[in-house]
Design a protein around this nucleic acid. Structure first.
Lengths: 189, 189
DNA sequence: CAAAAAAGTTGTTCTATGTCAACGTTTTTT
DNA sequence: AAAAAACGTTGACATAGAACAACTTTTTTG
């Protein structure tokens, strides 16, 4: 049950078994179904999630009600609504499992307690932040000046698992293009 | 000379004078002129900069040679090409002072030495990462689905100093619109 | 301080892509 | 298993904004 998380943590840093057990002990498990909302946009994010199985989507809605996908996290990754988690302000974004998923989660209180008391955990958090930053940069700036076809090619190259696991509609909203345009581009290879 | 940096550090966390002096001692000063390149896209970023006076721009160029502005850092802020600084790979982006500037800088080696040995400095780094992440998110996702006029209004509201200190051309490339479009929008208020 | 270069403005034209609609297909619900 | 809902595809049409160009204004340089 916690073995995937254990593996993840061990890969990131040197951890003796006792510290590992300590970290693990703060995580709880939750099973969710397809399209289950974990966090509403008016809520304050209290948990950090680790995905054992499934997929978490981070998205927003505009005034017209269109969904806008920001991020997809797949198995063996952490995900949360970080700005809200950090600043404890309403998230203004949603967290949702888009498939039946098995998640581990840790409360913010416990998370920051670990960051404070376990240097290796602090290091892991720093790495999560660094990576999150780099990935977000790459993704978003990578798209700058791209036309729709280039965006699709970028996804095929850099995040092919996304096309396999996620509906066209969501991919389109992730790329900032309309579903029809995505459909047309895909048909032209 | 280091007083702005000292003020910045003290505001971020509790620091005794000795630790403060230790941190400060790793910074060197550099004076740059308008449009001076600090980092080329094929270089690996070795320094973290703190801006005493002036402004650093982070930008890229596409195959046609058009400049694309990613970020502007003004006085009393840190700036670097973070992905390259972290991973020590070619930056694929440029750092440039767009005005005559006075900068403090610390080498990557010294920076990570401080992160490792001074917990308060590690905390400051974590905060820089958290903030960087949040700001980048806000900026970029804030623009999602915005038309050109909405982007300009967003800037006026959230980063008015940018319009005052930066050329229209650079602002346009930051917003992902053409200079002519920016000009037209501004004329219609 | 004059000449040259860069930046800003404004009109015209052109194109990528959004929007809407119709239809077929897949998925979900009961 | 049938009905309903959501999704994907494709065509027709409309439009925001890019590209280009000509001109003016500002900035930089020798």
């Amino acid at each position: 049950m916690f073995d995937i998380l254990e593996k993840f943590l061990k890969r990131k840093t040197d951890l003796d078994d006792l510290t590992l057990k300590k970290i693990i002990s703060y995580f709880k498990i939750i099973h969710t179904k397809r399209n289950q909302i974990l966090l509403n946009s008016d809520e304050i994010c209290k948990n950090y999630y680790f995905i054992n199985k499934g997929c978490i989507r981070l998205f927003t809605t505009d005034k017209e009600g269109n969904e806008n996908s920001r991020y997809f996290a797949f198995k063996e990754n952490f995900a949360t609504a970080l700005p809200s988690f950090i600043d404890q302000k309403p998230a203004e974004e949603y967290l949702q499992t888009i498939q039946k998923s098995e998640l581990l989660y840790i409360s913010r209180t416990d998370f920051y307690y670990l960051v404070k008391t376990v240097p290796q955990f602090a290091k892991i958090y720093t790495e999560i932040l660094e990576n999150g930053f780099i990935m977000a940069q790459k993704r978003i700036y990578g798209f700058q000046g791209f036309d729709a076809a280039e965006k699709v090619k970028w996804i095929i190259k850099h995040q092919p698992e996304l096309l396999l696991n996620v509906s066209n509609k969501m991919v389109a909203s992730y790329l900032g293009i309309s579903p029809s345009t995505l459909s047309r581009i895909k048909s032209r290879l």
